[in-house]
Structure formats: structure tokens, C-alpha cells
Design a binder for these strands. Sequence first.
DNA 1: CTAATAGCCTGCGAAAATGCAGGCTTTTTT
DNA 2: AAAAAAGCCTGCATTTTCGCAGGCTATTAG
Lengths: 228, 228
Amino acid sequence: MCPIATCLVKQCNHTWINRLSDAKNSPIYPKGQFVFMEGSLVLGAYFILKGKVKVISSNVGGKEQTVRLAGEGHMLGHSAIGLEKYSIGAVTLEESQICFIDNATLYEAFMANPKFTFEVMRFYSRELRKSEIRTKCLGLMNNEEKVILGLLYLADTYLLGSQGNQVEIDLNRQEIAQIIGTNAEQVSRVLTSLKKEGLIQTVDRTIQLPDITTLKERIRQYAYATSY
Amino acid sequence: MCPIATCLVKQCNHTWINRLSDAKNSPIYPKGQFVFMEGSLVLGAYFILKGKVKVISSNVGGKEQTVRLAGEGHMLGHSAIGLEKYSIGAVTLEESQICFIDNATLYEAFMANPKFTFEVMRFYSRELRKSEIRTKCLGLMNNEEKVILGLLYLADTYLLGSQGNQVEIDLNRQEIAQIIGTNAEQVSRVLTSLKKEGLIQTVDRTIQLPDITTLKERIRQYAYATSY
DNA sequence: CTAATAGCCTGCGAAAATGCAGGCTTTTTT
DNA sequence: AAAAAAGCCTGCATTTTCGCAGGCTATTAG
């Protein structure tokens, strides 16, 4: 039985929770694995049971942009009815367990469970709002502000509960750059500067954020907020 | 009776279509009017019956970014249950008629009409995908490409049917700049250059796109497509 | 008709971002 | 343990973007 209380599927009635539980499969993906690739057909929806995923989109030249970060309880795959090709991919950032439910079953579940459909709708609505605020930020911010935005976005998405402000980020410079639409060198420069100010620490490969409050203060003028 | 066949409300059964028809009000907003303002409470959802709307978000300094364009049949307001403050506003680009339905009524409609909820969910899902592809483009494109993206975004959103490739855009340079995260001068420069190439025409205040195909070709490497 | 205003275009210097290169450190492989 | 590879930092030259300023045009107001 699935232990994730926040999983959207939990909005179904008991009969359907069991039926979806039977219909799903839940493979474990190693770090760096594609959950689905750009240009592939979407045959159903993915629910993250455990782990971290980035949603990406690339141009033909191979340049890649991370368009969304997703964690436990999040939904992937833009559940489509009918087959849609679709120019977005998803890659695990660490070992992750991800449930898959096919479109036909999902559609039946939507028709039989209004609350489930409603909560999925709300999920997309919230993600859209987050994406739009991101659009604003990426459109108006300079490089340093974007790097701070990226760090806070990672923190917001992957800080579990309120266990202090300690967030560890285990991505390389290139991957951080792709979240905010810049390049590895710029990220390096800004991180160095933030380190000198004591706003971040680096331990081994990971970046730690001991003072999230001050970081947020830095980009306050964009009305960036943890909860959207 | 509402004449918009694509309106999402049409997914409800007849009883509910009538009930929502009674519950809604449908004011006509003049050009340049706020439908709702940034920071206001969201008390329900808006359905565009006729007209064009931009969804905006600003920073404290007053710089404004257009995060989404919406036209006939589109939904605004991120229907929320409960009251949520929310840092996004909407402004008409021309005289527009927009229906409003309050959250309580909407919630009942969602619970009673699975197909309605499902289609609203799909609407948000599609808009999210569009927003994410926009994130990619704004992250990877240079200025000229962004301007072309902006023109095509306007064309896609407001080209009604397939009446040739004639699209008229009646925004000033500043407003175009805010769609793509740049400034009026840059837009001016790119438009001049595109005009010299014969890819756009300006007649009075409006920009015409006589050759959408070639414009799309210009940014093909970003896999930008009319239908997402 | 004239004046005033708003929008538009474009040159130019300043600022920011980019991307290469070289040196360093860390991790992985052999 | 040594070698190879990958990642990281930073200086520098180049390119791009920014934003002011001035002149032009079109629209609106008087």
C-alpha cells in the first residue's frame, strides 16, 4: 500500500484507490535516468512516490532548459487523453520511485471521482501559477538574482517539512544554470560571491543554504514567495 | 444564452449549464481595464466570452511582465477553493466581455460534472505545457528570436480560425517587450530589421505577419510549434 | 491650424553577459 | 597509486544587451 499521504490518488474513494493500486506499476529509477523522453508519446501519468525529478526541454542544438522541478507527491506527464506527442522530458536527479497509471484507467478514475479530478486540476493550476511567476522572474532578473532564485526554487521544492533552513543541493554548476537559463560560469561567479558573503556554504559537492531568509530578502522586490 | 461553443462550461449537463448561466455575470470591459489586480483575492473564475486579455505580474519597482495571453474561450483566475491572495493580474487588450462565476457555485459544478472538471484540468495542463515551452524559449533565445517568438505567440493566440496568415497586432513596442522580457528599443530594432527582410509589415499602428511560415522557420530549432 | 503629447526609431557609450582558456581540485578509472 | 576524466574557478576579450538622448512621425487636444 502506498505510503504517500499527499499523493493525489488518495483523493479517490477506497474502491478506486485499490483499483489504481493494482493498475499501477512503480519502478525504481536510478539517478540520471529518463522517466520519459522528449518527443515520446504520453501514455499515462506519473506520480512521484520518492525522489527528485527535473522536467526538461531542449532545442535542436542540444541546449537544455529545466522547466520545472518535481518531488514527492508531484504529478508528471500532463495526463493526456488520446495520444499526444510532446516536447518535454523528465530525468531523475536521484534514485526515485515513480508510479505510472495508463490513460484509460486514469480517465475512468477521473469520471468516477470528482474530488480526485478536482485536486488534479488544482495541482495543475498551482503549477501554472508557479511557472508564470518563474516567467516573470526570468524575464526581469539579472544573473545574480536568477541564481538566488534557482537556489530558492530548489529549496522550496525539496525542503521536506520545516527541518530548519538546512537545504542541501547536489547539482553541478551546469545543472543549476539550466534551471535559470544561464551558463555554468555565471553560476560559479555568483556562488563564489555568495560564499564570500556567508550566504551559502559548499561541503563536498553539495551547496548548503544556512540563511534562506536573507536570500529571500535579496529578491523580495519580485514578490517571490515560498507558497504561491 | 452564451454563444461560445468552446467555453469550458459547455462540458456541464444542461441543468448545470442553465444554472451557471444564471449564476454568472458578464460585464463588458473597455480596453486597458483590469479584470483583476495583482494582490487581490480570487473569488472565482473568469471565462472570456469575447476579446483579448494579458495576464501580468510586476515587481515592486513597477516593471511588468506579461506571463500569458488569453483569448476567447480561455479561463482566468486559477479557480481557487477558499480564498487565496495572488500575485497575478489581468488586463484587457481590447474591449472584452468576460463571465465571472463565484467559487462556491463553481465547486458544486465541479462535483456534479466530471467532464467539466476534467476539461478544466486539461486546460490547465495545456497552459502549463505552453508556459514551460515559453520558459525554455525565454531561457535559450537571443533578443531577435524572442521578438519573433512574441509575434508568433500573439498570432497563435489571436488568429481566429485559418483565415490566411494575416494577423494584425495592435500593441505598442513596450507591450510587446513585456511579453518576451526585453525592452521597447530592442523590439524596435528587431522589427525594423524584419521589416527590411519583408517578414512583417506595419500599417498604421498594427503589425501584420504576411509570412508566418518563414518566421516559424527562424525559430524552428527551439521546436516551437503552434499546437503544443 | 497649431501646439502638445505620445509613440517610434536609432546612434552611442556603458554595462552585463558570454564563452574561451588555463590552472586547479575532485572524482573515477585503470 | 597513477592516470584520466570531470568539474570548478576566474581572468580576459568579445559580443550582446541596456538605456539614455535626440530627432522624427503620428495622433490628440486646444
